[in-house]
Amino acid sequence: MQELTAQLREKAKELLDAKTVDLVIGYGPTGDNGEMTAVFARKPEDVEKLGLNGQCFRNLAVYLNKPEVRKQGKPAIVVKGCDRRALNVLIRERRLAREDLHIIGVNCDGVGEPLMGKCKFCSVHNPEECDDVLGDQIEMPAEDGQFDDVGEMEQLSGDERWKFWSEKLGECIRCYACRQVCPMCYCKRCVVEKNIPQWVETSPHLRGNLSWNVIRAFHLTGRCIGCGECERVCPMAIPIGLINKKLTKLVKEEFQFAAGMTDDEKGPFSTFDLDIDTDKGIL
């Protein structure tokens, strides 16, 4: 780990010194407990704040959508394999151009203590198509049972599911942390903020919360890369990731598709292609 941190700092310094990039978005320890949070190195001397360890669970790709960060100039970004998938979606959706970005991939054998759920089922331990890669190649087969929790939910009756979700979603306070942390939630004005007409009620009552959480999941279908950030940041501990996972499972079964594996993939709900889409449909 110390070695990786040293390599990262050296790389970041080289990029900033040569002005290849204007900032390096990475991780670094903050505060008394050394929690690994986002660090934005804008000057060569800032690279001392960068670090890497097994607690780098955040997905930094979200910061590429923030106008405040974009204003700082050309970024280099530190990504794990899962985060790299988020970049693929952003590139295929024309949010980012590959050449405007310097990608520092980190081979990753899992983060979190205990290991985060997503890491057990990860198939992208070694991020691909990066400008630099740090760390040794990881051989770590994905465990089975990625969708077991979705399966358990599917076993419940409609009434039981309604009760479960009414209780959980009833707690949502509409802080939108889930949206703000999600790399795929980049709309300049979210549908929940549109009020002529008001599509989604903004009050944190069950009716409004159901509309909000369901519409958000819909908008992420075939786009969510399962980084788990939305669920991690939810202050009310709502298992919102499970809704996305259900849709991820459906997309996998129906379209044999997983989001973010390449940057020129055709997303099932964002592609119109007469050769693929032979259904007569409504048009």
């Binding site: 986002a38 910061y63 306070i173 802080c175 942390a177 703000q180 942390v181 940041v233 202050p235």
Partner: peptide, 17 residues
Amino acid sequence: WLDVSLKCLGCGACSYL
């Protein structure tokens, strides 16, 4: 203010709670 705010996501968690 730029230095302390770049990592902020602009959500409502801190204020609501």
